[in-house]
Amino acid sequence: MSAPRMAVSAGGLGLKNPVLAASGTFGYGQEYAPYLDPGAIGGLVTKGLSLRPRPGNPPPRIVETAGGMLNAIGLANLGLDEFLETKLPWLARQQTAVVVNLYGESQEEFAELAARLSQAPGVAALELNVSCPNVKAGGMAFGCDPGAVGRVTRAAVAAAGQVPVWVKLTPNVADPTPMALAAAEAGAAAVCLINTLLGLAIDAQRRRPVLANVVGGLSGPAIKPVGLRMVWQAARALRQSHPQVDVVGIGGIMSGVDAAEYLIAGARAVQVGTANFARPGAAGRVAAELEAFCREQGLADVSELVGALKC
């Protein structure tokens, strides 16, 4: 049997396969160059970028938990100017789609970032982070209010011109559907979910939180069922009203079968996050395993899985 077709069209981009590396878990790509040629995956999403550099939260910032980890990095990043100068040129030379994750403290900042990044050569798409649990202003505060998600998205879409805008949603809501619909209505090419789930780790001996920030975002295999559920909810709603808007599934993907589950739940593409820490280059392995899964299933095209859930 011939090899299954792995190329997909998702969120306004043609991707060589539906597996991307998730924001904040793949640095600026170069960190993983000794372990994974970015050309082996459909795309990579860079660490959340703000207009000005951010030092991030005090340590400790991370702790391992059962089947996952908590992080409170606080969107530490080098800021837009430095990114454009020192990181983007290398990224632009890679044979993969470069998606820039960005974060603003106001609608205006989101728009300014979108405007400048969309002019930069090599940026395939923008991913708006309206869902970070680890910052005080913006972030999740935007992401829990459909009105704010709509406004921020509209402003970024207007500023980004031809460059597709993806919107990354928080799972820290009862139902992500209103946010997904608001983003779609405002012109997003895709909604991406999920970001991390707000959690707390306690050191019982010291009666203190483990993280300096007290709370942090939970990621890794432990959150996969939540991610699958939310992707399924969002995809079902969008299929009715905005069939042109894709869902990108994220959360706890460790293997090709995990990725297939997200596609079956309704995602057109997936992002691999924490798994990259567990094994450098995990996103490449997920892509290869997904192809093997399609072959085993006798599929001609990976897209046959999308939304194939029978229920």
């Binding site: 878990t25 640095g27 340590p59 991370i62 992080n71």
Partner: peptide, 17 residues
């Protein structure tokens, strides 16, 4: 020493002031 997730500079988890 610091707690580490990736070891390669990607997670920004291992910082000290």
């Amino acid at each position: 020493e610091a707690p580490m997730a990736c070891g390669v500079g990607a997670c920004l988890g291992c910082v000290l002031p």
